[in-house]
């Protein structure tokens, strides 16, 4: 029963994140902006990380798209960032059990654990060859430059 609920939840998340970039335009992203922010609990402590999901922010400017994801405590070898066709996939595992020989008495346990995966369909104008990523103190930043043709160029026109 629990397992079934978990899988349903994951399915919902899958649909939700596929919508981020779906269709390539900003319209779906902007539509989501108008929805109330439901990702914070009363104390604001979960920072969009309920159910161990990966929270992402996305920004676009003339040169590219910039993705930020909260992924605290991930070993670099454990974090997988893959680009297949035009789908960016983030996967890995949160919060491995503490490896101690002694018996552990838990007093508080709030950190989510387990596997995560998030797939994001990229707009067509992403230059997949130039995607770069940086991970620092649990924050992943992925820079997705646009193909140069999509960057508007300013041409100085000389009038004689």
């Amino acid at each position: 029963m629990l397992r079934q609920n978990l899988l349903q939840e994951m399915g919902q998340i899958q649909r939700q994140f596929n919508q981020i970039f779906y269709g390539g335009g900003l319209a779906p992203m902007l539509a989501r902006l108008t929805a109330p922010d439901t990702h914070e609990d009363a104390c604001g402590g979960n920072q969009g990380r309920s159910q161990g999901r990966v929270a992402v922010n996305l920004r676009e400017d003339a040169k590219g798209y910039y993705l930020e994801a909260l992924l605290p405590g991930i070993e670099m070898e454990q974090l997988k960032l893959e680009l297949t066709e035009n789908v960016l996939s983030l996967s890995g595992a949160f919060n491995a059990e503490p490896l101690l020989d002694e018996e552990i008495a838990w007093h508080r346990r709030e950190r989510p654990s387990g596997q995560f995966q998030r797939k994001i369909e990229l707009p067509e104008d992403v230059d997949v060859e130039k995607v770069s990523a940086d991970y620092h103190q649990g924050l992943l930043r992925v820079t997705l430059p646009k193909v140069p043709a999509a960057v508007p160029k300013k041409i100085a026109v000389q009038i004689r």
Binding site: G45, N46, Q47, R49, L70, L71, P72, G73, N95, P98, L100, E102, E103, I104, A105, W106, H107, R108, R109, E110, R111, P112, Q137, G138, L139
Partner: peptide, 20 residues
């Protein structure tokens, strides 16, 4: 988000602060 656990004579507090 924090985890607090006790093992032997040591208490460990782990706090998640992504983007710190």
């Amino acid at each position: 988000l924090v985890d607090i656990y006790e093992a032997g004579d040591v208490m460990t507090l782990v706090a998640e602060m992504p983007g710190l």
